[in-house]
């Protein structure tokens, strides 16, 4: 699924985030957006997902559903790790096991550590079958070994899907095998 940002302008109230922003993302491509805090990386992910619409210009290729790891975990507190993942489909147990959560299948989100809950959110996105996988700082709370394990899992499970990610770490971008797009060079505020 290719995604095209065509002269996109977006503002939160009076605060302009993007003005005449254009970018082409090829079908099956993995792109990592980097840039300083507040430059609009998360907004870009939300525009690409169709969760928000630009005030001017257009975003083409937004699929009807998106596999999304939000900045916050957004897990349903009354459902276990397994149930949160199974809610969107896929083999919940297998994916959770791949992310070293095989022993936490029946644990509620409130009883998980921050890193564990993050992995459940990642597992949910990987279990969901959308041509677009969106990852907003997916490795928050992971140690180096876990980042490698999770990145390998993403590469394998997202093969053929378009992946858009936000990360502050060049190492994480490299592990994802992504094209890096620096937002500060593309935006005009």
């Amino acid at each position: 699924m290719s995604i095209v940002f065509n002269n996109v302008s977006f503002a939160y109230g009076r605060k302009k985030i993007f003005e005449n922003f254009s970018l082409d993302i090829a079908d099956g491509e993995t792109v990592v957006f980097t840039g300083p805090s507040g430059c609009g990386k998360t907004t870009l992910l939300r525009l690409a997902s169709g969760l928000i619409r630009p005030q001017h210009g257009e975003v083409r290729g937004c699929p009807p559903t998106v596999s999304f790891v939000f900045q916050e975990n957004r897990l349903i507190p009354t459902l276990t790790a397994r149930e949160n993942v199974a809610l969107v489909g896929g083999d919940a147990e297998k994916i959770l096991d791949e992310l070293a959560l095989g022993s936490e299948l029946d644990t509620l989100p409130g009883e998980l550590s921050g890193g564990m809950a993050r992995r459940v959110a990642l597992a949910r996105a990987l279990a969901h079958d959308s041509p677009l996988l969106v990852l907003d700082e997916p490795f928050t709370g992971f140690d180096a070994a876990l980042v490698e394990r999770a990145a390998e899992c993403i590469r394998r499970r997202a093969a053929g899907r378009t992946v858009l990610a936000v990360t502050h770490s060049p190492r994480e971008a490299e592990l994802l095998g992504a094209r890096e797009v620096k937002i500060e060079k593309l935006e005009r505020k």
Binding site: S49, L51, V66, F68, F70, R74, I76, V88, H128
Partner: peptide, 11 residues
């Protein structure tokens, strides 16, 4: 936030 998550995933 959960409602938006559900919308994104098409729940």
């Amino acid at each position: 936030q959960l409602l938006e998550m559900a919308r994104a995933f098409g729940i």
